[in-house]
Amino acid sequence: MITRFLSEVRTSFNPFSPLSKTARTFLAQLPPDARSQGMVIKSTILPRTSTQKPELAVKFKDGKKLKLDLATMRSTEVMAEVDRHSRILARKEELSG
């Protein structure tokens, strides 16, 4: 997953729900120095009884916001979705030098 262009990641999930796996995998894929590079990472852990669906909100460095419904998406789909915009940014960066 390309994480260079992410500026903000917000998730909320209930770890006792099997649907939370995607959100947790996403968090585990962020690089170890993400916070020191200026990425804002906020994760809210909901109580066990909560029926709220897991959420993931990603903000890119160009200001684009992406909100993903993790209840229906698999981890690979989330990655593909995030990478789609990251690749555009990567190409722009490459062309501008």
Partner: peptide
């Protein structure tokens, strides 16, 4: 910052963060 507490097992029962 990179550690997230998910829950606990207390006397064989599952507890969430608040518990």
């Amino acid at each position: 910052q990179k550690l997230m507490m998910l829950g606990a097992r207390v006397d064989g029962k599952a507890f969430d963060q608040e518990g």
